[in-house]
């Protein structure tokens, strides 16, 4: 394991960058997913069509292709995703503000892709709310928006939290692809470079990368299992 200890800074830096990417993309995915979920259940047909189309496309296309489009089609549209240079966030997530846009493109790709799965998780949560709740809300005269805001969504969140957690875990793992689309220094790729460029032994380095990811995914998975079990008992 000497290769991991000698290059600890590489792994630590990569871990931190991947973590930043995951946090930002998770926020993006939750926002996009919530909006699309509302679209899908809204009374306006074109919005429903947009929601359904969005989910169909992003659930069925490989993430690799989504990454490609955000890294090459966005620039073709003349955007460097500068709208993500959000003041305040820049101080913590330093990569957000640099000139090279690929970190921002990676956030967009991951958010768009994961958003479709977030939407489905939320919809499953909404479906889990007993019909009587929404009907009662309508009976006392709440509009669609009020119905969602005060009655359905607060209960749906609860039912959706475990599936949402699984979606976020999947997203953390998916972030390993960012290194292949111009993000320099993330966990998987900086480790990979240790093997291919510096000629460090393969197995220890791969174990090092794996540990980095497991630190992020396994505790989250165990936490979800806990919540799920407690929920099962409560029922």
């Amino acid at each position: 394991m000497g290769a991991v200890i000698d290059n600890f800074d590489v792994f630590a830096g990569g871990f931190w960058l991947t973590l930043q990417l995951c946090i930002l993309a998770a926020i993006g995915a939750l926002v996009i997913g919530a909006v699309i979920a509302v679209f899908r259940i809204s009374p306006v047909p074109p919005l429903r069509a947009i929601g359904t189309g969005y989910v169909t496309v992003f659930r069925n296309v490989p993430l690799t292709i989504v990454f490609f489009f955000s890294a090459f089609a966005l620039p073709a549209l003349g955007s460097n995703a500068n709208f993500l240079r959000i003041p305040g966030l820049e101080q913590i997530f330093t990569r957000l503000s640099i000139d090279l846009p690929y970190f921002r493109f990676a956030i967009i790709a991951l958010s768009l892709y994961t958003g479709a799965f977030v939407c489905e998780a939320l919809r499953a949560g909404i479906n889990a709310v007993p019909t009587g709740q929404a009907e009662a809300a309508r009976a006392i005269g709440l509009t669609f928006g009020q119905n969602l805001r005060f009655v359905v969504l607060p209960q749906a969140w609860k039912a959706a939290i475990v599936p949402l957690g699984s979606v976020i875990i999947a997203m953390i793992k998916n972030s390993a692809l960012a290194g292949f689309f111009g993000v320099v220094g993330d966990l998987s790729n900086s480790g990979y470079a240790l093997i291919t460029v510096r000629g460090e032994p393969t197995i220890p380095v791969m174990i090092g990368i794996s540990i980095g990811f497991l630190i992020m995914t396994v505790p989250l998975g165990i936490l979800l299992d806990r919540i799920e079990k407690r929920r099962a008992v409560a029922r």
Binding site: S175, A176, S188, Y192, M206, S210, F213, V218, G221
Partner: peptide, 18 residues
Amino acid sequence: EVFRGLPVVITVVFVWLG
């Protein structure tokens, strides 16, 4: 737990190089 928590890219590359 381990293989559920690892990115597939990593397992593929691990197998290929390792």
